[in-house]
Design a protein around this nucleic acid. Structure first.
Lengths: 217, 217
DNA sequence: TCCGTATGTCACTACACGGTGACATACGCT
DNA sequence: AGCGTATGTCACCGTGTAGTGACATACGGA
């Protein structure tokens, strides 16, 4: 099983660290290209141009590679703390959330690996998935905390629930945009499509986080 | 390959229609239990307690079974036209939408097959999926049209985009509830959890569909 | 220099799956 | 009753995959 159809990069040389990196990067490429279904030791080894035996030697099996992949992925999620320009935006809870969410969505749209990971997550509980997931969900929580910062949500609104709904919608729409290209009649291909979607989300969040609006009822 | 570990139901007897039904129902059970990954001719035949050869004879292959499964599934989606009690609710666009969405979410939460189908859809384009999907997406459009009815959305709001966002959030939350049991810190297990989520969605939609609210800006 | 070990290579087994040909049997039509 | 065909059963092949044992080779320390 020498370097097969995909030479990927230059000859491995006799370097364990480099080889391990090759495997993890190969796993990411395979996952981005073929999804969770195509993620196996054979595919990864072929993509990395190395022998699968080394996967068992260095990672103890497929799970180890996925674990390393999970550690490598999703680090950017924790770095989404927004830096609002003016003081008003800094203290406006809704504006902060919206800015962070749109930034998150844009990043996610460009991250094929994370997309497949999210889709995989919805396919059902898997022993292999657990390894990847834990690290990422921790980062997710960290992101939520960093975004909030010192801003406080208006009283009377269930901010965690509303934020979860917004995030859920974004995740789903990005995934659908990547596969079918639209959802429920809403196109999700061009940049203009996404501008429209985020504008609609903005109107939802702005209305919900409007201060004191619940007194009016 | 006689009746294997899963006898499912009584002896097949020599009845083609009944056998075909067995296969489709078996496919639904396998999909609900093991997801798209476990959906294969061997698994379906074993679950149905019949021989896989008959799958090829009667359905031409796995695709035929999935097509039949798609036709059977998703029929209820078209029957979600709400019947508002009072005249106000009938004409209130936001209320109509919210009622339909919550009803849809509740149905979806109980439909394991449709859940796996939605998750499958997000895993990437698949030749097999196309067969199932088309019929269902048509039903989806019909639902949206039936819900709207004679009510018209307030001017100045992008109703299709907002509705898509709401539906996307519900789909994602239901899927996450079925797998991880929570999302972004929002628990999605108990009935109370879902009450909380739908209440938050209600606040979002009510605020967005409030008449003339955009004049205030 | 020589030897031990880490690194890499290859061949092989065991297994599950999709798919098909050959056979057995029960039903219905004439 | 006899026969043709639909229905059901079984054995088999080719393929792709996970995983392992055996071997080759380069590097580094005694």
């Amino acid at each position: 099983m020498p370097r097969a159809k995909k030479p990927a990069e230059d000859p491995p040389g006799r370097d364990r660290e480099a080889t391990e990196r090759r495997f993890v990067e190969a796993a990411a490429r395979v996952l981005a290209r073929d999804g969770a279904a195509g993620l196996g030791v054979n595919a990864i080894a072929t993509e990395a141009g190395a022998d699968k035996k080394l996967i068992y030697r260095y990672f103890g099996g497929l799970d180890g590679v996925l674990e390393a992949l999970g550690a490598a992925t999703g680090v950017w999620i924790g770095d989404l703390a927004p830096t609002p320009t003016n003081a008003k935006a800094r203290s406006d809870y809704g504006a902060r959330m919206l800015a962070a969410f749109t930034a998150y969505a844009e990043k996610l749209r460009g991250d094929l690996v994370l997309q497949k990971l999210l889709a995989w997550e919805l396919a059902g509980p898997s022993d292999a998935l657990g390894r990847i997931d834990t690290a990422r969900s921790r980062q997710m929580g960290k992101m939520m905390h960093a975004i909030r910062g010192d801003a406080v949500p208006p009283a009377g609104v269930d901010a965690p629930a509303i934020n979860a709904i917004a995030l859920a919608a974004l995740n789903y729409l990005v995934l659908r945009g990547a596969t079918t290209g639209s959802f429920a009649g809403l196109p999700l291909k061009t940049e203009a499509d996404w501008k429209r979607a985020t504008t609609a989300l903005e109107s939802l969040l702005a209305a919900a986080y409007e201060k004191n609006r619940w007194r009016k009822l």
